[in-house]
Each structure stands twice: as C-alpha cells, then as structure tokens.
C-alpha cells in the first residue's frame, strides 16, 4: 500500500524536527522532506508532489490569500497550517490547523482524520479491474500509449489514466516491472514478450 507523503515547512528547526518525530507515530504516512527556506517551498512542492503540506503561513508567498491555489492547481494536496497564532482558523482555505501549543494526541488525531478523509482513494485496493487488466496486457506486450489507444478505440488520455491507476494499485512503475506482473498473473505468456 502506498504511503501518503508529507512535507513540513517552517522556519524553526525545532518545530520541523519535532513535528516530524511526532508524525512518525502515524501509520501509512511518511515525512519526505523538511523545508527551511521560504524561497524553496513552491519548487519543492511541485517537484515532490506531496499528499499533505504542513506549512507555517510565514513561509507562504507574501499576499497569498488562497494557499492551495498557490501550489498545485487541481492536484490533490491537503494543506495544514502550522503556527503559534490562535486566530488562524478559517484563513487561507486550509484543511487543518496545528497550533504550537497542541498536544501530541491532538495533532495525531487531526492528521489521522485528514489521512482518512478519502482524499487518497484507491491506493490500498490492489485488485485491478478487467479493463485495466486488458490495458496492462497491451503495455506488457510492449505497445505504446498511442498503439493501445488505436487498438482499443479509446483516447490516449484514457490510456494514460488507466496506466496511472494500474501503477498506483500495483505499486509498479516501470514497463518491465508491469510485464513481469502480467506474466506472473498469466495475462500474457513469457514467449509473447519481445
């Protein structure tokens, strides 16, 4: 099962590292990077595409009103604000808030709620549909997205979406990895592989 990824951005190293150590108690999630520099935030968020961003509002670009918009447009990102100020609620359209004074359990409960919210669908159901199996078979045979689209009379876009879902469900990204899976599950035979 894929783990949810978390980024923490705050000026203080005590806060960053402290929060990371608290979040280690969460199952199925992982803090992938700590950010200490305001300038780097946008770039790192775009590059690493975390599921959850925990950020001190001071680290946001100045004049920012809709924090989420600032980062990934349309992509799934839960935003949690981290601050020592009490009056932060309802600001900046965040999904959750952590106050410096919050106890460990409060923080963990809130995080768990966000993780459970279902904003990370399908990641744990690993059975692939028969449609996806069919696509997988074609991938394993070495066809390109375009060729698959032509053969199955669907758009390339649909093929790409299916591929994404397959990869997410199986936890396998590379074509050769998917091919091995297809052989193991008798979707294709070994001799068919180029």
């Amino acid at each position: 099962m894929a783990r949810s990824t978390i980024l923490i951005a705050d000026n203080s190293c005590m806060i960053r590292k402290g929060l990371r150590s608290i979040l280690q108690n969460l199952e199925n999630s992982e803090v992938i990077q700590l950010i200490d520099n305001k300038e780097d935030v946008c770039e790192i968020v775009h590059k690493r595409k975390p599921d959850i961003l925990i950020i001190n509002p001071d680290m946001l670009p100045s004049g920012c009103l809709d924090a989420k918009k600032e980062f990934l447009n349309g992509s799934k990102l839960s935003l949690i604000l981290l601050s020592d100020k009490k009056n932060l609620k309802n600001n900046l359209k965040a999904d959750g808030y952590i106050n410096y004074m919050d106890g460990q359990n409060t923080i963990l409960d809130m995080m768990q709620e966000i993780l459970n919210k279902g904003s990370f669908p399908d990641k744990n159901s690993e059975t692939i549909s028969s449609r996806e199996k069919n696509i997988l078979k074609h991938i394993a045979l070495g066809l390109t997205n375009k060729e698959i689209a032509d053969q199955l009379f669907i758009s390339i876009h649909t093929v790409v979406t299916h591929r994404k879902n397959i990869t997410q469900k199986l936890g396998i990204k590379s074509v050769s990895g998917l091919t091995v899976y297809a052989i193991l599950h008798n979707l294709i035979s070994m001799d068919e592989v180029k």
């Binding site: 936890g171 396998i172 590379s174 990895g177 193991l184």
Partner: peptide, 15 residues
C-alpha cells in the same frame, strides 16, 4: 531508481 523499487515490490508482493 524506479526499476529497483519495482523489483523489490515484485519480490515482496507478487512472488
């Protein structure tokens, strides 16, 4: 890195 991760996944999950 992708391939290496896939190999681990296959050996752990599917074999």
């Amino acid at each position: 890195e992708e391939k290496l991760m896939d190999l681990k996944t296959i050996m752990i999950k599917y074999l």
